[in-house]
Design a protein around this nucleic acid. Structure first.
Lengths: 344, 344
DNA sequence: CTGAAAGCGCTTACAG
DNA sequence: CTGAAAGCGCTTACAG
């Protein structure tokens, strides 16, 4: 149907090598032959098949992004950062979605096995070390965002620090009884955020009441749902001694928590974690993750690894920013920016 | 580095043809040889390169989705529908993002030219007929979502009907002076929505006051921004005769309109168009587009076109649903579902 | 500056 | 049931 390099070569009365050179801006081709080839190509609507080029070059010039379909605004922001950054390089960005519900490892494996990308950026996919190890065997560059595994470059946000900052802020406001709404208890982000919460309480000499650390019963999506937050806040409210303020492990849960408060006619300050799109609209105070920057950095790391033979594996941890809105007491509309990211 | 079909053939003492057959579940291979090949492959960590397979088969088994990066929730929902549907077929979904700001035609062209996909689903990209025509020359299946071009399969929502429904609803509530907030005046969706608005007014015997059809001054993203909506509503409010209710061409603008009302201490019923993620959270009434269904249908159409040689081009138009929330008067939390989509 | 030829890693009639 | 061989559409030393 569409023409190949042979058609052009024949028409332009040159060899296919020359046609190839023209399309690769290669070294030396006479202006005259170049123009002739280009004219014929234009005429026949020819353009090199990336597929064939990739096979011959043994390079696809593609960076593949693997991302769970549900990951909403966080993902869009990260992707925007990746997209803007990749414009600086000679790579295309290709995205594959995985379904969070199904077996993530298998899906990632399926994608990587096909080998379209020269490298893979995996966003918000959480696997066990032993599972990452399996993917590591493909011996292909991988950059993880929002996850940690020693064998790959990773980019994440310091959950411990974020939780510490949020909780400390509430403490500074004068609250002494502070609750925390968690999601899946043994997931990495939750473990860390719980730890940061605890530390902030302890550093302030406050009692950590296990009864005020709750999660909802609905564990779909590891508990990172509005419903879970609603249930959790309901528990807190029904507590014999409800907290005076609350730190939520995620914005989506904070949203549910706010609804629960509204339905129960109570109102205590709440701070979430993420800064999703709707957070601004509902006035939710939160710990913001620098999503755009994370995406851009992922590309930088990936390209570096692709182009330079042996660069060391790096783990970058960003500090989340406290964004104050109306859901927490001293609303002033300001963003407290924390220090620079730390790369180790 | 990683092994090829030749390595396996050598180790297993068979021809590469046989190895190929094993991995294609092809017809007849002795159980014994099959097992031997599989064992060797497993041992060497072999798996066929999709790239090479695609070249040899002249089929990539990939459907490429082209989508503007900013298209938020609408896109996520559409994609979810596509993803769920494609599971029924032997194709992979690959996504390329385009930047809405830059030259869309060039970007789409760049992507299609490379030829990764066997077909392209293009979401929310708006080009002139003459531009679509250029892409048509690639002679490759294209399905358009949220756009119309005679030469491709298309899936869209009836903007005229949606605007008519929204406006009529406001009229039924008893309002006689109804404003409309538009975006880029000469874009297809705006032209249609303005038309639907007008018709509803006229059918109800109401006066269409051109002074109540406004848009903001900020025309970034064709005016589909919060800021534009804010400016537009401000204009309406400052009108000598402000409207009693307002239909907004998009949810994002409706959001800005609501903020403008809040800042000016006025409150009139508002209905948007889209049903974005935040719409529910802010209680915005709106015309909902059946995003998930549109995505699923796009895949169906694409596969059909890919597998069956000559199927006729079809244009499917969905009717948007009126979703009533607190931003419009008679909030009842119900969804009025309209009739089935029409395929022509 | 340009061509002939080998090679990228597979698939698939065609024989046997 | 299996192998030899041609072919998919390019790139890239190697000569000249």
């Amino acid at each position: 149907m569409s023409s190949t390099i042979y058609d052009i070569a024949r028409e332009a009365e040159v060899s296919i090598a020359t046609v190839s050179r023209v399309f690769n801006n290669s070294s030396s081709v006479t202006r005259k032959t170049r123009e002739k080839v280009l004219a014929v190509a234009e005429n026949l609507g020819y353009h090199p098949r990336a597929l064939a080029q990739s096979l011959a070059r043994k390079k696809t010039k593609i960076i593949t992004v693997i991302v769970p379909v549900i990951s909403n605004y966080f993902f869009m922001e990260v992707l925007a950062g990746m997209q803007d950054k990749i414009a600086d390089y000679d790579y295309d960005l290709q995205i594959f979605n995985v379904k969070i519900a199904d077996d993530l490892l298998n899906q990632a494996d399926h994608i990587m096995k096909r080998g379209w990308g020269e490298g893979y950026v995996v966003i918000s996919v959480h696997l066990a070390d032993s599972e990452w190890e399996l993917l590591d065997k493909y011996n292909v560059p991988v950059v993880l965002i929002d996850e940690y595994y020693p064998g790959f470059d990773t980019i994440s946000v310091d959950s411990i620090e974020g939780a510490y900052t949020a909780t400390s802020h509430l403490i500074e406001q004068g609250y002494t009884s502070i609750g925390m709404i968690c999601a899946k208890p043994d997931s990495k982000p939750i473990i860390d955020r719980r730890l940061g919460y605890r530390r902030a309480m302890e550093d302030a000499g406050l009692l950590v009441d296990p009864g005020l650390i709750v999660t909802g019963d609905d564990m779909e999506r590891d508990g990172f749902t509005e419903n879970n937050g609603y249930q959790a806040m309901t528990k807190l409210i029904q507590n014999k001694q409800p907290p005076q303020a609350c730190f939520c492990a995620s914005d989506i849960q904070a949203l549910g928590a706010i609804k629960a408060m509204r339905d129960n006619n109570v109102k205590i300050p709440v701070i979430g974690f993420d800064d999703l799109e709707f957070s601004e609209y509902v006035g939710l105070s939160t710990m913001r993750q620098p999503m755009y920057e994370m995406g851009a950095l992922a590309i930088e790391k990936m390209v570096k690894r692709l182009e330079e033979k042996q660069s060391d594996i790096t783990h970058t941890v960003f500090s989340p920013d406290l964004v104050l809105r109306t859901s927490s007491p001293d609303f002033a509309g300001i963003t407290k920016t924390k220090d620079k990211p730390v790369t180790s």
